[in-house]
Simulated assay, not measured.
Amino acid sequence: MTRLAVRQRSTGRLMIFGFLSPTLAILLFMVAYPIFSLIYYSFFNFSALRPAAGMKPVGFGNYKFLLSDPDLWQRFIFTGKFVFLCVTLQMLIGIFVGYQLQKNFRGRDLIFTALMMPMMLSPVVVGFLWRYMFNSEWGMINYLLTVVGLPKIDWLGQTTAALWAAAAADTWMWTPFIILLATAAFRGIPETINEAAEVDGASPAYRFFRITLPMSAPVLFIALILRLIDSFKQYDLFFALTGGGPGSSTETVSFAVAKTAFSYFYTGEASALAVVLLVIIIGLSMILVRHLNKMGERF
């Protein structure tokens, strides 16, 4: 390699580093520093409300205390149920509706725009809206039940009913996101492939499960990963919808982090719990991304 080529390569690397350095600095300040601070505080008995008391090192004491707490495991179980229920409903409904919207028909754009509107709202607004709708006395949901002859349900006063109420609110808000990605993935499939399969006599079900779904699987898998991550750290919806009740039975892990940090001001324990949640989300994401890479190699 000539001296000129070496100099050009070095100059190119310096330019790349110069363009990336502002972004790297922002990420270092906005992401890396808070994460390392979180990990650091998790090893201390510390309260942000009483900084004068100092920070007492406890090693893994906060982690041992949290992981031996049966209430925390109940929150993990409830969070897992919520994530499974929401993501399953959103993927099934989103794929079905997205498959219908990828077809060209009159009024399609208007319907598509209307379906995207819930996604534009704040989760807190959605939580309060559905809280009024699920009111046990004058809510619209119970009114519709009485119209068809069914008894009223105390939606937000029972753990199981509150779980379904929260899943309904979250599904109403975030299914449009799945619809958006599914529609884009389906419309990205060349028409010639489906036309050739139709000429060969393939049924609509066969074309969907053997052609459309496999070819759009990478995009749908990305949507699945994003919704899993977001559902796992759900807090604001439950804050507005149930307040964590009845009792603390509808507290997610994120809700428990916020409650421990800003209601009880146990900063060390809250940091440890946040680290545990972060490790779970990162681990789950790495597993899913690995499967996504294998899927990309296949298709």
Rank of each mutant, 00 (worst) to 15 (best):
F255H: 12
T171R: 10
T192A: 09
I193C: 03
A205Y: 12
N135L: 05
F208Q: 11
D236L: 10
Y235G: 03
F232M: 10
M173W: 06
E191M: 11
K233V: 06
D170W: 12
A258L: 08
N194C: 01
T250Y: 05
S136V: 03
S203E: 02
L273Q: 14
A223Y: 08
K233Y: 04
S203R: 11
A168L: 15
P204H: 03
E198C: 07
L226Y: 00
P190C: 02
E198K: 13
R187G: 13
G244E: 00
F262R: 08
L181C: 10
A197V: 12
E251V: 07
S249H: 14
R227P: 01
P246L: 11
A165K: 09
F186E: 03
Y266V: 00
F177K: 05
N135D: 15
M215D: 00
A161I: 01
G149E: 08
Y132L: 13
I189M: 04
L156Q: 07
T171I: 14
S216F: 06
G268V: 13
A197R: 07
T192C: 01
Y264C: 00
N142I: 04
V253C: 08
K233R: 15
E198R: 14
F239C: 01
S248P: 05
E195A: 15
L228D: 02
D170Y: 14
A217Y: 13
K259C: 03
